[in-house]
């Protein structure tokens, strides 16, 4: 069983297209983004409203590479390093130049 999971994982890494951000969790990223970022970055909030579409993939990546949010380190500010990675994954995967075909319902 372990072998199979490993094989699956390996396959996932190979199979995923180059432009998807794969290291973190998209699902969790969405959760932490809403929890950490949306508390301020909303219409009528204390900061400018932000959605993943606010930047391109490159811009998001660059933002996270700096590791800084208004001069503060991202990690304790937005959560644990894993959570920051999740947020990054979510934002990059849904950036304004990400391939995200619309779907039907759901």
């Amino acid at each position: 069983m372990r072998m199979r999971t490993f094989a699956g994982l390996a396959l996932l890494l190979v199979a995923l297209p180059a432009f998807a951000e794969t290291k973190g969790s998209d699902t969790k990223g969405k959760f932490y983004f809403k929890k950490s970022c949306k508390s301020c970055h909303v219409d009528g909030g204390t900061a400018k409203a932000i959605t993943p579409l606010s930047k391109t993939q490159g811009q998001w990546k660059k933002f996270f590479e700096t590791g800084k949010h208004k001069g503060e380190a991202l990690s304790p500010k937005l959560g644990t390093p894993e959570q920051v990675l999740d947020i990054k994954t979510f934002l990059v995967n849904h950036a304004s130049d990400s391939p995200q075909p619309e779907t039907c319902g759901g």
Binding site: T5, G8, L9, A15, D26, T27, K30, P101, G106
Partner: peptide
């Protein structure tokens, strides 16, 4: 949106290998 506790992403890739064979289509579907 109702916020519920997020789970770990599934570890395996999809059995239809959509990421490999249909990289442009919606993998979630």
């Amino acid at each position: 949106e109702f916020m519920f506790l997020p789970w770990d992403d599934p570890k395996a890739s999809r059995v239809d290998e959509v990421e490999k064979d249909f990289p442009l289509t919606s993998a979630k579907d």
